[in-house]
Write a protein that binds this DNA or RNA. Structure first.
Length: 122
RNA sequence: CCAGGGGGCCGGGCAGCCGCGUCCUUCGACAGGCUCAGGAUGAGCGGGUUUGAAGGCCGAGGAAAGUCCGGGCUCCACGAAGCAAGGGUGGCGGGUAACGCCCGCCGAGUGAGGGCUUUCGGGCCUGAGAUCAGGGAAAGUGCCACAGAGAGUAUACCGCCGAUGGCCCCUAAAGGGCACAGGCAAGGGUGAAAGGGUGCGGCAAGAGCGCACCGGGGUUCUGGUAACAGCGCCCGCAUGGCAAACCCCACCCGGAGCAAGGCCAAAUAGGGGUCUCGCGCCGAGAGGCAGGAGUGUUUCGCUCCGAGAGACCCGGGUUGGCUGCUUGAGCUGCGGAGCAAUCCGUAGCCUAGAUGAAUGGCUGCCCCCGCAGCGCUGGUCGCAAGAUACCGGUUGCGGGACAGAACCCGGCUUACAGGUCCCCUGGCAUC
RNA sequence: CGGGGAGUGGCGCAGCCUGGUAGCGCAUCUGUUUUGGGAACAGAGGGUCGCAGGUUCGAAUCCUGUCUCCCCGA
C-alpha cells in the first residue's frame, strides 16, 4: 500500500482543523479524509531557519513518517507534521518515540486545545 | 625558523544497514490505438501524464546565496544610419561573446620596513605592497554655512610706512615730530580654504619688484602604440575647491523574460465585438435572387441548405501533461605563443535535472581542535610528598564552518571552522 | 523572475530633492492651579538618523555596498 503526499494548499488548511498534538520538535495534525488512505504532508515555515535547515528538517520528518506510518499511522487520515525550532538539533530516536506517543494520542481522539482561527487584521 | 603583508587551491575520508531521484537493461501487469480473422472473442503490430520487481551508472557549491552588472536562448516591436529623450560607463594599452570584469603599464595620495643624520622634538633618502567613481573647473550656471576686514570682479580690522606732498618744531644747514593726503600687504587674527613656497637682495615700508632653488603653466625635441616620462627653452606666474551639484565631451544601451516560447489533452460557450480577404448575381450591410435537398394540395407554396477563412480584443473554461532541459563561450591531460589576463593546437571524457521540489536517516572507525583538582602513563623538575610551562602515548566527553541547483554561462559582492601552497619586506641562525 | 516603498527620541511622523540649526504631536518628569484627581498653563529631559565604507572643509541628506521589514505584478 502506498502512502500519498499532500500537495494542495486546501488539504493543509483542512488538516489544521483536525487534532493537534504538540511535541518539542514538531506539531502533529491529524484529520480523517473520507477513505483516501493514509496521507501525509510536511510544513516547515521560513521562521525555522534558512533553506538548508528547512530542507534537512523535512528530510528527517520524511524519514520519521516512512518509519512510523505503515504500522502506527491512522487509517484514512491525513497526517501533517509542522516543524518547530526545537526540532532542528533534537535527537532522531527521541523524536521517533515522541511521534509514536503523539500518534497513539491522536488515535484515542486526544489532542491539544484547537487553535483559534486567525482573525484577518485590519 | 620567526614576524608582518598579499594571493592561489582544497573545504573532511572510509565502511555497514535502511531509504530517495533521473537514465539504462531485463522480466511483468494494464488503459486507449491500428491491422487481420470473426458468433462471444482471439492473434499480431506498435505503444504510454499508468504501474510492479530485479540489476547497473550517476547524483549540490565555492560561494548553489544576494540578484548588482554582462551575455546566450526565446517571443514581441522595428528598413538602415542618424537625431531626440532617458539610463550607464570614464587614465592608457591589451584580453574577452560581452561587461561596470580580468591582466599589464602610467599617474596620484598612502605606506610596512630599511638606510643616513640628529640639538632626541625631528629631518632627509629609499621603498614592497595594498588603495583610487582616475575625462573636463581659462564652455557656461550654481554653491562655499558660521567666523572673518575680505571667499573668487579679492580685501584692509589690528598693523607697517609715511620716501613724496601737507602741517608743526628747531633752523645757517642738517635734522626732529604729527599720522592729514597717501602707500603697503610682510606680520597678527578668522577660517577647511586668504590668490604659489623657502632664502637672499631690494625698499620709506613692502610686494615675483629682482635673483637662486622648489612648485606651476606653455612649448621644441627625444623615448614610448598610448597614458606619460625626460632634457632644453620661454612665461614671474591673479585665474582656488566641489562635476558621488546642474552640466560639457567621448563611448555604450530596443522591450520583456523559461511562469520566455512551442505542442497535446481536458473543459465551457458550439458565445460577443472590430478589422481584413473572399463569395454565381444584386447590395455598404441586413437581406434578396439564382441554384440544391425535402415535402405537399405539384405552371405553385412551405421548410432547410445556399461561404467561409484569418488577425486582434472581450467574455467563459482550464491550474493537467510533454517539450524548452541540459553538449556547453564545457571538463581533464599534454604541447606551444605571451611578462600576464588569455589564446591556439591536440588527445580523451560526458559529469545533477528535482517540481509540496531527489542528492537523505542511523551507526562505527580514522583525521583535526578543545576540555578533563595532570584523568592514567612515560619523559622532564624535585631527596620526597608532589609539580606540570614543554615533549610523547592513552582514556572519557564535546565540537568540525558558511550554506541547497530550479533555463544556462562570464563576472562582481557578501558569508565562512579549518587545512595547504606560493610571493614580497624584514629579523635571527647556519653554510 | 520582475517592480515599488520604508528604517529618525518610548510611539506615530516631518526634515533628505536644493549638504552646515535634527523639528512636530502624543507619552514621561517638574512646577502652578485644585480639598484631591483629571483637564488647562509654564518649563525640562530624552535621538549611534538600520549598519559599513566613500565623496566633501562638513553627510540624517549625495554615492556605493550590506541588513531587516512591508507591498504589488506574472
Amino acid at each position: 500500500m502506498t502512502i500519498e503526499v499532500l500537495t494542495k494548499r486546501a488539504d493543509f488548511l483542512l488538516a489544521n482543523k483536525g487534532l493537534r498534538n504538540a511535541r518539542p520538535g514538531f506539531v502533529l495534525l491529524t484529520r480523517p479524509n473520507q477513505g483516501k488512505g493514509k496521507r501525509f504532508g510536511i510544513t516547515v515555515t521560513k521562521k525555522v531557519g534558512n533553506a538548508v535547515v528547512r530542507n534537512r528538517m523535512k528530510r528527517r520528518f520524511r524519514e520519521l513518517l516512512r518509519d512510523a506510518l505503515p504500522a502506527e499511522g491512522l487509517a484514512d487520515h491525513d497526517h501533517v507534521l509542522v516543524g518547530r525550532v526545537g526540532g532542528i538539533a533534537r535527537d532522531y530516536h527521541r523524536m521517533r518515540k515522541e511521534l509514536t506517543h503523539a500518534l497513539a494520542a491522536a488515535s484515542e481522539g486526544k489532542g491539544d486545545r484547537p487553535r483559534k482561527p486567525r482573525k484577518p487584521r485590519k
